[in-house]
C-alpha cells in the first residue's frame, strides 16, 4: 500500500535521514522505535510532506511519486487519503471537539454538514467522548485532546494514519486511555505507522517493528521476532537498556 525508497533529508549540514526504505501493507501496524535524534519524527513528517524530502520515491496505492519534485496538487490529494496525529495534539484551538472532527470533512472533502456531524459524532463516541462534543480544546485534558485528534484522524476514513509519539506529552495515567483507543483502531484493521516510545504498544499491538538510529533503519522485523530474537547488536543494546516496567500494557 505504501512503499518508500531512498528517502534522504538534511537540515543544513546535518543529514537526518540517510536513505530509508520502508514498506507498509494494508492492515499493518508498524511501530518505529529508536533513540531521540534518530530521525523517526522527520521520517513521518516527510511522508506527509510537513517536511520536504531531498530525495526518494513514494508509492502510494500503486501510484509513484518523486518526493523532491512532487506537485502541490499531488500532495493535497495524498494528504486527503492519510491522517496525522501529532505529539501535542494540534487541535484547532478556535473549534470545539466536534468542529475539529468536522473541519476536514466539510471544508476539505465537501461532505454536507449534517452528514459530517453524524460521522464526527460517531468518531467521538468511538473514542469515548460522547459527552464532550461542544468542549473547546482548552476545556479538555491532554488525553481527551489526543482522543479528539484520533477521532479527527479516523473520521476521514484514511488509508493510513501516521502517529508521531502520540502519548509522549501525556501523564502516565492518561497514556493508557489513548493507547487503548489506538489498540482498538489496530484491531479494526486500520493501517498505522506509529513513532513511539511505548514498548508495550510496539510489542503487543504492532505487527512490525522498525528500529532506527542516526538516520538509517538498523533493524526491521515482525514484532514478536524483534523483541525475542533481535538480530543486530545495536538493537540488543537498546532493548537491554529499557527498564522491565516498560514492557507492560
Amino acid at each position: 500500500m505504501l512503499k518508500i525508497q531512498g528517502i534522504r533529508k538534511a537540515f543544513g549540514p546535518l543529514q537526518v535521514l540517510k536513505g530509508i526504505d520502508l514498506q507498509v501493507n494494508q492492515g499493518d501496524v508498524v511501530a518505529i522505535l529508536g533513540p531521540s535524534g534518530s530521525g523517526k519524527t522527520t521520517l513521518l513528517r516527510c511522508l506527509n510532506f510537513l517536511e520536504s524530502a531531498d530525495a526518494g520515491t513514494m508509492e502510494f496505492d500503486g501510484e509513484s511519486f518523486q518526493l523532491d519534485s512532487i506537485s502541490r496538487k499531488e500532495i493535497r490529494a495524498l494528504r486527503k487519503k492519510t491522517a496525522f496525529v501529532f505529539q501535542n495534539y494540534n487541535l484547532f484551538l478556535n473549534r470545539t471537539a466536534i468542529q475539529n472532527v468536522m473541519e476536514g470533512l466539510v471544508i476539505a472533502r465537501k461532505v454536507p454538514k449534517p452528514q459530517a456531524r453524524e460521522i464526527a459524532a460517531r468518531a467521538l463516541d468511538k473514542v469515548g467522548l460522547s459527552d464532550r462534543y461542544d468542549y473547546y480544546p482548552w476545556q479538555l485534558s491532554g488525553g481527551q485532546q489526543q482522543r479528539v485528534a484520533i477521532a479527527r484522524a479516523m473520521a476521514t476514513d484514511p488509508e493510513i494514519i501516521y502517529f508521531d509519539e502520540p502519548t509522549s506529552a501525556l501523564d502516565p495515567e492518561l497514556t493508557g486511555e489513548v493507547l487503548s483507543v489506538m489498540r482498538q483502531l489496530a484491531d479494526e484493521g486500520m493501517t498505522m505507522l506509529v513513532v513511539t516510545h511505548e514498548m508495550g504498544f510496539a510489542r503487543n499491538v504492532s505487527s512490525q517493528v522498525i528500529f532506527m538510529e542516526d538516520g538509517v533503519i538498523v533493524e526491521q522485523a515482525a514484532a514478536g521476532e524483534f523483541f525475542s530474537h533481535p538480530g543486530q547488536e545495536r538493537t540488543k543494546a537498546f532493548l537491554a537498556n529499557l527498564g522491565d516496567g516498560q514492557y507492560g500494557a
Binding site: 506527509n48 510532506f49 510537513l50 493535497r76 494528504r79 486527503k80 492519510t82 491522517a83 496525522f84 501529532f86 501535542n88 494540534n90 487541535l91 484547532f92 484551538l93 473541519e103 476536514g104 471544508i107 476539505a108 472533502r109 479527527r152 476521514t156
Partner: peptide, 11 residues
C-alpha cells in the same frame, strides 16, 4: 502546529 494540522486535514 495549527497550520500543520490544517494541511494534514487536507485543507
Amino acid at each position: 502546529g495549527q497550520m500543520e494540522a490544517g494541511y494534514c486535514a487536507g485543507m
